[in-house]
Design a protein around this nucleic acid. Structure first.
Lengths: 118, 118
DNA sequence: TCCTTAGTTCAAAGGTTATTGAACAATTGG
DNA sequence: CCAATTGTTCAATAACCTTTGAACTAAGGA
């Protein structure tokens, strides 16, 4: 019940760049980076699209080697593959995330958050 | 007789990443970086594809703000927009180029070079 | 002027991508 | 067992991407 991931040396630079070159996926990565260490499940990202669409984008990120997904119950806990990416492409992830943080045009995760009544 | 370029603040991160996520274009950028300071014309890249195809990819790079093209006679002198990219996305171009240099799967410019007879 | 060189534009083909809704599977809780 | 929760798979669609050859423009040299 484990999902397919590329090994570190199967991660391809053009593929990683292409996968990050989509606003929805870049927003996912930015959010993962902002919560680094906390594994997130797919439902956290429903702000960014339908369930089906999220499944599609998360599979792209995983298949490119950008994220790792661990199956736990009915959930998939998703984390950034920071170690592998840093080893393969030093500095790349950091500069992409730093630039993404400043990108106001990217869709935001948590934009439709339930407001706690005061 | 000048070609359209985005201004520095019109350069979009997802768009730059998407444009760099193509092996042909990444090979172009890698070669431009290896000859930085030397403006190159399109014919230098004919190893990577047909004239028509190169025109297409070079337009993509220019329209994304990755390169600048200056019209000189019948040539277009192409350079990396390093200052604008560094200002907008610090460290990104350097890490992409460093990773691209190590990427043996990328097509090589100059692979069909005319050998000087000994 | 005529020819060559350097690139672009166009239309077409074939492939890939993003998005959707409906149907499905699998785990968890009552 | 039944129902709710999580997420995947499928088929369809519309849009976009890459590549091609033929035709074109524009500048430079003989």
């Amino acid at each position: 019940m484990t999902l397919p991931h590329p090994t570190a040396d199967q991660i391809s630079l053009p593929n990683v760049l292409a996968v990050l070159g989509d606003p929805t996926r870049l927003a996912i990565v930015r959010y993962l980076a902002s919560k680094e260490g906390v594994p997130l499940n797919c439902s956290q990202f429903l702000d960014l699209g339908s369930k089906t669409n999220l499944s599609y984008h998360l599979a792209k990120l995983r298949e490119a080697g950008v994220t790792r997904a661990e199956v736990v119950g009915t959930s998939r806990l998703i984390t950034l593959r920071r170690d592998d990416l840093d080893a393969r492409f030093p500095g790349l992830l950091d500069s992409v995330i730093a630039a993404a943080v400043d990108d106001t045009a990217l869709p935001a995760v948590g934009a439709n958050e339930i407001k706690i009544q005061a």
